[in-house]
Nucleic acid binder design. Structure first.
Length: 224
DNA sequence: GAGGAGATCGTCT
DNA sequence: GACGATCTCCTCT
């Protein structure tokens, strides 16, 4: 049994019915230092709407990327065609393709003209699980935690579960009511936040810029 | 459960 | 031409 499955029983359910109707978080929230935005994004809901179908996941793991001062950030070398969203207005989705397989979802931070972003690394599935299973091409079997973690625990996984692609979502305004991809606040607050080094990078690998909801079983990886 | 290797392609040098 | 903000499968313990 993993650490995650041990702690799962201690978790209070985070399900909320408010999620689907709450207003998106305004752009001003993102127009700040990515570290602050990252910490405060924990516990918020990522919502994908397609007509009457809604997929919702609670953000449980993020990483901050600081812009041109951060060697690990895509924006480190200045604006390029790929990373221009990071230099644009705050509250936009920055979606990039990695390792020939996966998309990763970020939100642009800092006022327009300054780079900075937050990578969404893991979600706790809240609603629309059948749609997530379908998008991931997985079969729901017993509904246990180990199976649910395969849906959205990891940047590539959550992007697939929410059908996020660069073509469809890059530069999308997640603060707009009309957007089919939003971040909303349903009032739920994590009890405890933990900070660790970022995962999977080689440059500036010792910076404590990964933020997770402590003991949440949907956080990716093993280190806490 | 842990660790390693392979898959595959856009982006930048 | 090299590499990367990853995932999955396979092998070994």
């Amino acid at each position: 049994m993993t650490h995650a499955t041990k702690t799962a029983k201690l978790q209070k359910p985070t399900f909320s019915r408010m999620g689907a109707k709450a207003e998106p978080i305004p752009w001003k929230f993102y127009a700040r230092d990515p570290r602050q935005v990252a910490a405060e994004l924990l516990g918020k809901l990522l919502v994908r709407r397609e007509g009457k179908q809604v997929r919702t996941g609670r953000i449980v793991e993020v990483e901050a990327y600081l812009g041109q001062d951060d060697p690990a950030a895509h924006s480190h070398r200045g604006p390029t065609k790929r990373n221009e969203v990071l230099f644009g207005p705050p509250g936009r989705a920055y979606v990039y393709f990695i390792y020939g397989f996966h998309f990763c979802l970020n939100f642009s931070c800092e006022p327009e003209g300054q780079a900075g972003g937050v990578l969404i690394r893991a979600l706790e599935p809240v609603a629309g699980l059948d749609l997530m299973y379908a998008a991931r091409e997985l079969e729901p079997k017993h509904g246990r935690l180990t199976e649910l973690r395969l849906l959205t625990s990891g940047p590539g996984r959550l992007a697939e579960a929410f059908s996020i692609t660069r073509e469809r979502d890059n530069d999308k305004d997640v603060t707009s009511r009309r957007s089919d991809l939003q971040v909303v606040d349903d009032g739920w607050k994590p009890e405890k936040i933990a900070q660790t080094v970022r995962i999977g990078i080689t440059k500036a690998a010792d910076e404590m810029l990964r933020y997770v909801i402590a003991d949440n079983p949907f956080v990716s990886g093993k280190k806490m």
